[in-house]
Design a protein around this nucleic acid. Structure first.
Lengths: 219, 219
DNA sequence: AGAATAGTGTCTGTCAGACAGTATCGC
DNA sequence: GCGATACTGTCTGACAGACACTATTCT
C-alpha cells in the first residue's frame, strides 16, 4: 500500500515572525502540542486550506491571525522546503514566509490553552527547533539582513512614530553589531522613506526629533 | 460537488532557463501542445511526482532533462505562485526556478515531436506568455540582475574557458546596458572566483588571456 | 603602417568608517 | 556646572565612472 502522501503531498506554510524586544531581535516560536515533534519548539505554521485560502500568503495570514491579534504590516516569501523526509507524515512542502511586527505590539499575542508562545532570541536561538525549522530561521534571517545591508530601512518593525536612535538600534539588532551614528544618519538622510515630524521626545536629556515612515516606502 | 483541486492543489514547477546567444540574454520557451492555454508560449514546467522526485528541485531537474540534453550547472529557486485562479484547472501552486546554461551548449536542445522549443529574447519578450509566466519571467530576471549588480559573476553562463571581454559581454547582456571596460576589470581583479590560465585566444588581433571559474565559486 | 582588440593609468567625485566635536535638555 | 543624549563636522582611504592611453597581434 502506498501512502496518500505519495499522491498528494502535505502543503503547509511556516512563518518567521520577527520583532524587537529590549533592543534584541526576537522570533516567535510555538511549543508544538501535537505529534509529530510534540513538545518541541517550532516556527508557527499551518496547512493550506484551498477552500478558504486565496493564496499561500493568505494561508500565512490566517495562521498568524491565530497567534497575533493585530493586522500584520509586512509578509514576504523566503523559500520553499520540500521532500519525502522532512516531515514524518510523508512527502511535504512548506513555504516559508517572514513577517515583521512593530515592537510596540509585541504583547498582542493571542492567549491559547493548547500551545505556548515565546519570543526567542533570533540571532542565537537556545533550542534546536522541530523539523527543518532551524535552517528556515537562518534563511529568513539572511534575507532580513540582506535588506538592511542594502540600505532598506526596517520601518515595519517600528511603531508609528520613532526617533532616529531607535531606528538605528533596530538595525543594529538585525545586523548583530554596532553602527556608527554619523554613518547611519548620513545614509538615511538621502532616504525618501522617512518624514520628519514637528514633534519631540522629551525625557531626561536633549529632546529627539520624531519621524514616521512615508506612505509607500519599500522594504 | 467540489472539485478535487479544492482538496489537493495541482503542484508544479516552472523553469526560466537562461542562456546567451549572440551576446543577448535568452530564455527557453515551450509552445504548449495541450490544453489549457494550448499553442501559447510558456516557460517549461511539469507537475510534481512525489513517488519519483526527492524534492521540488529534483522535479525541476527532471523536467529540464526533457528539454536539454546536458547536466545543468546551476538551479535556484525564485518564488512560488499560488491561488485558485492562476490555472483554469483549479487551485494550483507553481514553484519557479531559474537555471543557467553555458552559451556554448545552447544547441543541446532535445528534439521533440510534440512541442516546439525556442530561445526568446529575455529582456523584451515578443509574445505574451501563458498563465502568469510573464510575471514569473520578470521575477527571475530581477534576481539574475540583482546578483550581477551585487558583484556576482555569472560564470555558470560561461563555457569552461573564456576571455574577460566575453565575460563582460555576458554581464552586459544581463544588465541590458554597456559597462566600462576599465571599471569591469578593476572590480573582478579583486575576485577570487577567476583563475587566469596560461592559454590565449589567437584571432585577428592581440591574443586575449583565457580564464576559468574557480572550483567553489558562488553565484 | 593601419585596423582591431587587449589591457592599463589617471583624474575626479562620492561615500564609508572613524572619531571628535557641538547642542540642548534635566537635575 | 554636570551628565546624558541628540546631532554635526571633518579627515582619510577606497572605489566607481569616465576617458585617454599603451600593447600586441594580423593584414
Amino acid at each position: 500500500m502506498i501512502s496518500n502522501r505519495e499522491l498528494y503531498p502535505l502543503i503547509s506554510v511556516d512563518i518567521a515572525l520577527f520583532s524587537v524586544v529590549e533592543e534584541t531581535l526576537k522570533v516567535l516560536l510555538v511549543k508544538r502540542a501535537q505529534e509529530p515533534e510534540a513538545k518541541k519548539w517550532a516556527l508557527p505554521g499551518g496547512v493550506l486550506k484551498p477552500d478558504r485560502d486565496i493564496s499561500l500568503e493568505a494561508t500565512a495570514r490566517r495562521v498568524l491571525a491565530d497567534k497575533v491579534a493585530v493586522e500584520l504590516p509586512h509578509l514576504e516569501e523566503v523559500a520553499t522546503y520540500s521532500g519525502p523526509d522532512r516531515d514524518p507524515r510523508g512527502w511535504s512542502i512548506a513555504v516559508l514566509f517572514y513577517a515583521l511586527l512593530p515592537h510596540d505590539q509585541v504583547n498582542a499575542l493571542v492567549r491559547s490553552k493548547v500551545e505556548a508562545l515565546s519570543w526567542e532570541n533570533a540571532l542565537s536561538p537556545e533550542n534546536l527547533l522541530a523539523f527543518d525549522h532551524t535552517a528556515q530561521l537562518q534563511a529568513a534571517l539572511e534575507i532580513l539582513r540582506d535588506k538592511v545591508v542594502s540600505h532598506a530601512l526596517p520601518l515595519h518593525l517600528m511603531p508609528e512614530k520613532f526617533t532616529l536612535t531607535a531606528l538605528q538600534r533596530t538595525c543594529e539588532a538585525i545586523l548583530g553589531g554596532p553602527i556608527d551614528k554619523s554613518v547611519f544618519r548620513r545614509r538615511i538622510r538621502g532616504s525618501h522613506d522617512l518624514i520628519e515630524l514637528d514633534e519631540f521626545v522629551r525625557g531626561a536629556q536633549r529632546p529627539a526629533h520624531l519621524y514616521r515612515a512615508s506612505e509607500g516606502f519599500k522594504f
